[in-house]
Nucleic acid binder design. Structure first.
Length: 413
DNA sequence: TGTCCACTGGAACGTACGGCTT
DNA sequence: AAGCCGTACGTTCCAGTGGACA
């Protein structure tokens, strides 16, 4: 009965109150707006370098860099989709393929999705990279097109797999007779060139476009533009919008972040039955986003990574606020035997710690303790209650949350 | 001044898996 | 069917190292 009443309440509030959103899709960061404020220069530059394709010439390779949320992807997609429309009007054989290298995180997968877009069927797995590359070549020559390849987030691919793929792609034109390929590389990391073979880098960056971070006032006008179609009239207060812009400006001028904040703030307001989104909703949104990010990250860890987090948690609980690798390994071993799981090696554990560090769940830094060796100091970047909440509900791990490791008895004061 | 701890992190290799070609 | 392929996840081995201590 109680549940019924609660739900009635929720439904009533949703139906009766003035709606906050007109169209919340507009705030998703994969939404492509009609206008991209403050990026006119980049649009013009990219447009200019890419237009030769309309006359059947290979356009220059382009290297684009800038931090996350500075509009690199949006501008590229914007320009290329306009180019595609124009090409259709002129009957020019131009096609482009957008590949996100985070998603296609290997040479094989990048080539596979390129094949797909030239109409070459390629299996999920099973072929050698060379084979897939050959198919791409024959597919391209059969298609007879100017093919513009966009490799978004190339930096992640290069850091893990090296630049072999880029090397192949920059040289592919030499073996192609009826088609031409132009490359657009997009990188979040400004120091990407350090990881690249100079030959590859120079041929990839025939042109370069840099995306500076947005400042607070630019972010504000971007948000304003989107808010017009996303929110109902008068449903968004000016100070809430400003706060979103200010918070995102403080963090690399990340427009994606600003949009997320605004959208979640709207959802918070909606849930609370408020007619207007105010600053407080933005603050809540900020906490919400971070909270969900961490919870999701924790839940998706593998068993052993979870055990590593739990080990740090236990050390932390016994007043060891910054543990060293050896201590963590001891606790971890004990937790493993408690679960009846064979433990991984210390070497492996150390790379798991590094992964957790880059996810922001732990904080690890190398320190030298002189006589007492060189190791890593590792701290928990989460509240203990959060660890309890997430792992406490886990069928296997729940028991270990309150377990007291024997190897830590001497620490307990 | 050198020693030597407790690791770090690179590299090569092993195993299991799903899935291709021939 | 055999043989090969890429990927994910792990192990084994080991040279390298910053700095407190003797």
């Amino acid at each position: 009965m109680g549940g019924h009443n609660i739900l009635d309440d929720v439904f009533d509030r949703f139906v009766s109150n003035a709606r906050v959103f007109k169209d919340r899709e507009v705030l998703r960061h994969d939404y492509l707006p009609d206008r991209l404020p403050h990026r006119e220069e980049q649009i013009r530059l990219l447009g200019e370098t890419v237009t030769p394709a309309l006359k059947g010439a290979r356009s220059s390779n382009i290297f684009i860099y800038g931090k996350t949320g500075t509009g690199k992807t949006a501008v590229t997609k914007y320009v290329l989709s306009h180019l595609e429309v124009k090409a259709k009007q002129l009957n020019a054989p131009v096609r482009f393929c957008y590949v996100n290298c985070q998603m296609a995180a290997s040479e094989y997968r990048v080539f596979a999705s390129l094949c797909q877009s030239v109409g070459m069927a390629v299996p999920f797995t099973g072929l050698s990279v060379g084979e897939v590359f050959d198919r791409l070549r024959t597919g391209l020559d059969a298609a007879q097109i100017i093919f513009i390849v966009v490799l978004d987030e190339v930096d992640s691919l290069i850091k893990t797999r090296g630049d072999g793929l880029l090397y192949e792609l920059t040289r592919i034109n030499e073996t192609l007779s009826k088609s031409k390929v132009a490359l657009i590389g997009i990188s979040n990391d400004l120091r990407l060139k350090e990881f690249l073979d100079p030959r590859v880098f120079s041929s990839l960056s025939e042109e370069e476009i840099v995306f500076r971070p947005y400042d607070a006032s630019e972010l504000k006008s971007i948000l304003l533009e989107r808010a017009k179609s996303a929110f109902c009239d008068n449903a968004l207060s000016d100070c809430a919008l400003s706060l979103c812009a200010a918070l995102a400006a403080a963090e690399h001028g990340d427009a994606r972040r600003a949009l997320d904040l605004l959208r979640v703030a709207g959802e918070v307001a909606e849930r609370k039955g408020a007619a207007i989104v105010v600053e407080e909703h933005v603050r809540d949104a900020e906490k919400n986003i971070e909270h969900n990010r961490v919870i999701e990250a924790l839940q998706n860890l593998t068993l052993h990574s979870k055990l590593v987090v739990l080990s740090v948690y236990h050390l932390n609980r016994t007043n060891v606020y910054s543990a060293i690798t050896g201590e963590i390994f001891d606790v971890y071993n004990e937790l493993c035997s408690e679960l009846g799981v064979t433990p991984l090696t210390q070497r492996r554990l150390s790379t798991l710690v590094n992964e957790l560090d880059s996810m922001g769940l732990l904080n690890a830094k190398v320190v030298s303790m002189g006589r007492y060796g060189r190791t890593k100091k590792i701290m928990l970047e989460l509240s203990r209650t959060l660890v309890r909440d997430v792992f406490g509900g886990d069928a296997r791990l729940g028991r270990l949350v309150d377990y007291e490791p024997k190897c830590l008895r001497k620490h307990a004061s």
